[in-house]
């Protein structure tokens, strides 16, 4: 008995993305270690891996999202899969990858925290304050997970825009992705230094769970939009 088609898709897509993420984290970790041991300057303390990697992980997910349509979608239809199965499998793989890229910085940060307590490092690592804003590592993990998934979806949105509508309309999709980033910043940036500062209400300061709920809603809208945009797409040859 073979597994359902969308699961075959998600297994294959996740496996490829997983390999890319291993490369990415290896490089990122090397850069971080170089910074800790050799390029620590005069600073008294530098950030732990969790904080250090957040921005890069978001960009990585954006790039993976952009690659998704061009690398996987045409391949799936050519292998006799429906657009629905391709979409569902890819979406599952994206959620899986988001979990993985959330987990890795957490674990490395935890190891650093442990090592800092047992051995002398050339510089003090701040492995704890990452979690102050959100109040604990669980909420920090939820925040990172929702952020990376949003970045992935923004990338996926840009690539389907280019793929379906050509490069001029593609720019429109880049503009749309800026709206997504703006909303995401509004939800997650603790200060008012974001694109939506004219809005009087600051969700993160008010309530973490409300922010997470708003962010989840944004993710769901993006998933829904992607289904609409891939539902009857013509495959390029």
């Amino acid at each position: 008995m073979t597994s359902p088609r969308y699961r075959r898709v998600s297994a294959a897509v996740f496996s490829d993305m997983f390999k890319w993420s291993l490369w990415f984290f290896s490089i990122l970790l090397v850069i971080h270690l170089v910074r800790v041991f050799w390029l620590n300057g005069d600073t008294n303390q530098i950030e732990g891996f969790f904080v250090f990697s957040q921005y890069s992980v978001n960009i990585f997910m954006l790039v993976v999202g952009i690659m998704t349509v061009y690398v996987f979608m045409g391949r799936h239809i050519q292998q006799g899969l429906s657009r629905r199965d391709s979409y569902a499998g890819t979406a599952m793989a994206a959620v899986g990858l988001s979990l993985f890229v959330t987990l890795v910085p957490l674990v490395i940060n935890g190891i650093q925290h442990f090592l800092a307590g047992t051995m002398a490092l050339p510089v003090t690592l701040d492995t704890a304050s990452a979690f102050e804003e959100t109040g604990g590592w669980i909420s920090a993990a939820i925040a990172l997970f929702l952020n990376v998934l949003t970045f992935y979806l923004a990338g996926w949105l840009i690539s389907i825009g280019y793929y379906r509508f050509g490069w001029i309309a593609g720019f429109g999709f880049i503009a749309l992705s800026f709206v997504v980033f703006g909303l995401n910043d509004y939800l997650w940036k603790p200060t008012t230094a974001d694109a939506m500062e004219w809005l009087p209400y600051d969700p993160l300061e008010a309530n973490f769970w409300l922010t997470a709920l708003g962010s989840s809603f944004l993710v769901l809208i993006l998933f829904f939009l992607m289904r609409l945009l891939t539902k009857r797409v013509t495959i390029k040859m």
Binding site: I77, S82, R84, T234
Partner: peptide, 26 residues
């Protein structure tokens, strides 16, 4: 191969429309 949809008319595989039909596309 269901890479695209016809502007009008229909394409069938073994009597069922092929576009977005997972069993037939396979």
């Amino acid at each position: 191969a269901a890479f695209r949809e016809p502007t009008s008319g229909e394409v069938f595989v073994d009597g069922s429309p092929v576009f977005e039909n997972p069993e037939k596309m396979e």
